[in-house]
Design a protein around this nucleic acid. Structure first.
Lengths: 371, 371
DNA sequence: CTGTTAGCGCATTCAG
DNA sequence: CTGAATGCGCTAACAG
């Protein structure tokens, strides 16, 4: 006869026996205390405490066909990119009893599809997925997941359930327009490898310049054709250029090739830092001779000299709102608006202030706080 | 009579029936194919394919009392800090069937304890935890977890099972010694809020200077007393100083207060970037007048102008080795050496090259690759 | 509001 | 190498 080794830990039956009630009442009390009378609730609570009872999550998952795991899929774990989004998610998950299973899709739809498939095997409580470019198969799986699904960090017209993000096209367009408005004519665009959202920003850049009759494809500088996130291993182990070095090299290259360049819109902040250092090394005045703008608005942009303009996007808020939407739905709330546009802000700083419109380099607000 | 709604998905019994074998044989074949004869294996594989069978992870977890979840605990999700470690872990987990539950301890032992307790409820496959400063209760839980437990990013004499990392004390000591060796006498130390490992680095700094009879407590600059990771919400929402701004302000302050300062060892790279920009804004020559060094060696350090010296630590490798150790043990391997010292490297660059010993600012290796 | 009954789908145990 | 029986610990479903 097959007798098994039990955990040793008390089970719900032990608690029920001790409290003199049925097991299901204990189960109910633990999940929805309001559905149990106060008297029984009290004795159950006492029994739980005395036995130091902790429910087994796997048994619960098997019986209920649901876990308390929120599956999160992000395209990259590289420095900076999604860490603020994750902070927003984690700040939102606390005291909810939910756990987070984090997946790295490496900007690959195929890997993403496989991870969604795998994740569905344990009945996740919810899914938060970056971008809106899922494969049809992934979309189908997500649509049938039977749990809240939130897409983040982009916008689209037909979200699976709900999308929370902003328009990369508009962001690229608005920053480029800011550069034009600041008096720069020959505006370059620097990028490393481009993902779907980067391409939207490039399109915005191009559109703004075309509208002003200033577009010049020769001013687009790019390094890296392959998805660097696909390769495993320390970046330094792969003899790749780092992003900052790319920014420097792209800038030095552009200075040699197109000395008439007037401004550079970098697809991310790190590129812009590299570009700034390149200009320092050549003693090129910023912003008078060349203006620089980045994308993301990490905190060091403001501390740079001169302070660097950038597009501030609401990374933390995006992650946090996604988590809040998940919790709202898990608590029985409705999905709410299917498309939530968080917008963005063009942060105008000294690096694009060609005509000295702004205050002196060291602004008081920067010295006091980052409000 | 209580009939329940089944998943609809095929179960192991369906596969067994179709293949004409017992359910347990299917189960065995799926986990340890070598224990099943080729003939049966083939027909099981066929049945699995035909039915599109996917094992239910929750049922497996309940029956086996183990999941395939590796619990990872890191103190921070802030930009840069632990993202490379996470990349190492994720690069190591692929094709293993393991999933990762990521927890953010916010540099709080209390939160960490609670998270370990919660994580243990589902029988994790393994646990990777940052640091060696767990509470006694946490240590006890981990010691009894019944799964591999790896501590990372620090060293100690009595790991719970195994620790993989490096000595923060030695790293602080060696970089400070490099500054002394480079001819700097009045060496300052800049930091934001300090965690346990930062304090070890400070101790190394102090020890090196004391050994050279150069220690001056007045040269220690610090901003921020409270753990910034404890506060939820976007940093900018909290009107805190950003790290880069801190570096700038600490530097400007030090220039005013101690104009005789000769070098600054920053507790992290972002501080050093802020400090560098502050010196640029005051036209202070680096490295001739003041030398700067950081800690971590992120890629932008090399792209800075002048290139910034730093302590390169093996973040990716640390995460990756931890994951590899987990897999090795899960495959039946032994724990191996309880203490694995990954070391670190002092990256000497232009920012601390007081006497022009190194090459010109733009080094060929930097322009070609990051080897 | 509470209890009884009957599984959830798999892996353990022991015997062949 | 294979299989039958027996839970793992909890909760859905229905009835009281």
């Amino acid at each position: 006869m097959a007798k098994r080794i039990s955990t040793g830990r008390p089970t719900i039956a032990d608690v029920a026996a001790r409290a003199g009630v049925g097991a299901i009442t204990v189960s109910r009390f633990l999940r929805q205390p309001e559905k149990v009378s106060e008297a029984l609730g009290a004795s159950i609570a006492a029994a739980v405490r005395e036995l130091n009872y902790v429910p087994d999550l796997n048994a619960r998952a098997l019986a209920s066909r649901r876990t308390d795991i929120v599956v999160v899929l992000v395209p990259s774990l590289t420095q900076n990119i999604f860490s603020d989004v994750l902070r927003g998610i984690y700040d939102g998950v606390e005291d909810s009893g939910l756990r987070i299973e984090l997946n790295n899709t490496r900007y690959s739809s195929a890997i993403e599809e496989q991870q969604v498939h795998a994740a569905l095997r344990h009945g996740p409580a919810a899914i938060i997925i970056s971008g809106t470019e899922q494969t049809p198969a992934t979309r189908t799986m997500l649509a049938n997941a039977g749990c809240p699904v939130i897409q983040i960090m982009d916008l689209c017209d037909d979200p699976i359930q709900k999308v929370i993000g902003f328009s990369h096209f508009r962001a690229g367009l608005d920053m480029t327009q800011h550069l034009i408005d600041s008096g720069y004519r020959r505006v370059a665009f620097f990028s490393g490898w481009m993902n779907a959202r980067s391409k939207q920003r490039l399109l915005g850049y191009r559109t703004a310049l075309e509208n002003a009759n200033l577009f010049d494809p020769d001013l687009i500088g790019q390094m890296g054709n392959e998805n660097p996130h696909a390769s495993r291993g320390s970046i330094k182990d792969f003899h790749q250029f780092s992003t900052a070095v790319m920014g420097r090299e792209l800038m030095l290259d552009m200075l040699d090739r197109r000395p008439d360049v007037e401004a550079v819109f970098c697809n991310n902040d790190v590129l812009s830092i590299g570009a700034l250092f390149a200009l320092h090394s050549r003693n090129v005045p910023v912003p008078e001779r060349i203006g620089i703008a980045g994308f993301n608005d990490f905190d060091y942009m403001e501390a740079a000299y001169p302070a660097l303009s950038s597009v501030r996007i609401h990374r933390w808020k995006c992650g946090n709102e996604a988590m809040m939407a998940v919790r709202h739905q898990l608590d029985g709330g409705d999905v709410g608006p299917p498309v939530v546009d968080l917008g963005f802000e063009i942060m105008r700083r000294a690096s694009t202030d060609r005509h000295g419109t702004l205050q002196a380099a060291r602004q008081p607000e920067a010295a006091l706080s980052l409000s």
